[in-house]
Every structure is written in C-alpha cells, then in structure tokens.
Amino acid sequence: MTILDLAIPVIAAPMAGGPTTPDLVVAASEAGGLGFLAAGYKTPEALADHINDVRSRTDTFGVNLFAPRPVPVDPAAYAAYRERIRADAERLQADVPEVPREDDDAWAAKLGLLVADPVPLVSFTFGIPSAREIKRLRDVGTITAQTVTTADEARAGAEAGVDLLVVQAPAAGGHSGTLSPARIPRDRPLNDLVAEIAATTVLPLIAAGGIMTSADARAALDHGASAVAVGTALLLAPEAGTSAAHRDALLGPDRGPTVMTRAFSGRPARAIPNAFLTEHHEEAPSGYPAIHHLTSPMRKAAAAAGDPEHVNLWAGAGYRQARERPAADTLRAIAAGL
C-alpha cells in the first residue's frame, strides 16, 4: 500500500487491552479504511498470531507499538498507592504486587518480529523510537507513523524519520500519547491542534480524538488532516472485544463527563467515571508501567465478575454517541460525504 491509499479516509484506532480484535481490523479494511492491531500488553507470540490471522483476510492493516518511554514510579508513592487500593483488590480476590514492575512491553522482540515479518504500517505511541529503529522498518517496506499531541512532538517525530503523524487531541479515549506523561494534557480542540501542526510539516496527518460523526471527520480534514482515526465510536461494535462491564457502562445511565486520570495506569488516560476512579483519581501517582501492573489483577478480576466499578472504562469525550452496530457500518457512516 502507498501512504493513505484508502477508499475512505477513516481508520480504526488501536485500542489495547481487549477492544481491538483481528475481526475489528478486518472489518475496517472491508469498509474501505484501515485498522490497527494493538500490540500493547500482548506477548510477541500473541501479536504474531493476530498478524497472521488478519493477513489471511486482508493486506490493508497496521500494528501499533508502545515505544519505550518509561516513567519510573517513586517507591514510596507506589507503596502508599498500593495500600490505598488494597481493599478494592482484596474484595475481588486480586493480587496487589508489592514490588513495582518496570518493563518495556517486549519492545525489542516486537520490533524484531515486525522487521522479520513486515506489515504495511506501524505506528508508535508513548515514545519516539530512534532514527535507526524507524529506518529498520522503512527498509523492509513498512510505512511508519508517530502519535503526537503537540507541535513540538510533531517536529521530533518528523526529525526521527517517520512517514506520517497521528495527531491525538486530549478528547481521545484511553491513554494519551503525550511524551510528557508527568503532566495531565490540557484540553485543546482537535481541529486547532491539527491546523497548528499542519502549518509546520509536509507529512500527512491522521486526526484522532473526538471523531464520532461525519461532521467531526469533515472538520478535521478541512483543518489539514488527510484521514481520521476513530476508537470510542467502535467500542460497541460486535467485532470489538470490549468487555461486558465496559459495554454496560457505555449503554447504561449517564455517568457524566469523562476524566483524564492516572488512577488505573500511572499515565494520563481518559475514562468514564466509576467508583475506583472517583475514589483514587486525586491521589494516583505518576508511574508507568508500574501502576498499570499494580492495578491490572484487580481490573481483570472486575471484568471477569462483570463489575464496571473497578475496571478502566476507557472512552473518549463523545462516548454517549457510540452505537451498537457493525464496525463497517460505523466507519462508512463517518466517511459519508467526505
């Protein structure tokens, strides 16, 4: 594929932790767009299996990697937060790891897999790989994209040698791709951010964060984007791996505006409010991936129990507009008239 050579300029954003499935990625391709497999939290072996599954059905897809940019947790802050959440975890019979776990999500192994078995497109989130690492992928024919949240990050991504920029606004659900995770990103309209970055680079831009309708997509394209990426709009699709507890929260009574929080992972991420977020949002320390690994057993136990109050209900600011319908229908609706 060539850069953004798509029938519709609408992309299914990668949603790590379950919502993105091979079926969702294939549905995006069948709609005329493109879907990203989310490599985050998967083993290299599981990622390889998902790539093989998708490749057997389409040759238009991408893979998103968490590029290493660790935020080491302060040991005292970790211990204090562990004590704060212990009762929540124990009610669900979940572990609360005593020793902080710091890792890089098997970065080298996943990068090696994608160099040895190339895919059409690879994007990076959380950090910017070295120019050498980006070149390794480009040398095997892979198009590369960097998630950015500011004009300075966009310049850094371009200087590293990527082909595309994914411009992510704070309205996006789930983790912010900010390179400065010690600070909660300030609210800023997607279109203002796209226009600012478009004025500083010749690289094609994919706009992400708050795209729920055709009007949203049209506005982003008018401000300089070449395509848009959607995530929250697909959470209720039958092809999505969204947990039952997460679906219930999306469909249930209005819980109010989403919140950018560190409560679940130690990194800024936008979520629908629930009991855990409300209780721990203010005290949650910065520290990724240690806080992610600390709360992960509790969140998995809550999801298995159908408990929406102790899982990360990632969602963008427009989550009330999400609909239960096939992913391809949602993507085509957003692309209508573009």
Rank of each mutant, 00 (worst) to 15 (best):
G231Y: 05
R188N: 09
V99L: 12
A305R: 13
V26N: 06
E90I: 09
A77T: 01
A284Y: 08
I272T: 02
L234P: 01
A156V: 04
A322M: 06
P189F: 12
L331Q: 02
A220W: 10
P253I: 00
A275P: 00
P185L: 06
T147L: 12
A158D: 13
P170V: 08
L234Q: 03
A284D: 09
G337F: 10
S243M: 04
A87V: 11
A322P: 02
A284P: 05
D49M: 09
L114I: 06
A327P: 01
I206R: 05
H50M: 14
W107K: 08
I197F: 07
W314S: 13
L24G: 04
A240V: 05
A172T: 08
G209N: 07
G252A: 09
T58H: 11
K42I: 00
R183K: 14
R86P: 01
P204S: 13
A219T: 14
H281G: 00
P273R: 04
A158E: 15
N274F: 04
G241I: 05
V194G: 02
R136W: 11
L164N: 03
A302L: 03
T278A: 14
E30Q: 15
V230C: 12
V99E: 15
N52G: 12
V148Q: 10
P189L: 12
V119G: 05
F66W: 12
T330Y: 00
G161K: 12
L114E: 05
T60E: 05
V311N: 01
V96S: 11
A158M: 13
F276I: 04
L164E: 08
A156Y: 02
L4R: 08
L65Y: 02
G112A: 10
A89W: 08
D216K: 11
R323A: 13
R155E: 14
Q321S: 13
A269T: 02
T258L: 06
F264M: 03
S123G: 12
A145G: 09
V122H: 05
A249T: 11
T278V: 09
L313A: 10
A154G: 14
V63C: 06
H246P: 03
A215H: 14
V71W: 01
P118K: 12
I134M: 11
L37T: 02
A199E: 14
V73E: 07
D248K: 12
A290C: 04
P129C: 07
N312M: 15
G177D: 09
V73M: 06
D187L: 13
E324L: 12
A317W: 00
I206E: 06
I184Y: 02
W107Q: 08
V140W: 11
Q146F: 07
M260N: 01
L294G: 10
Y319S: 02
K110T: 04
R299W: 04
A27F: 09
N52C: 03
W314P: 02
P308N: 03
V167Q: 04
E159I: 03
A76M: 10
W107L: 08
V71C: 05
E239M: 06
G35P: 05
I85A: 07
T330H: 00
A171H: 14
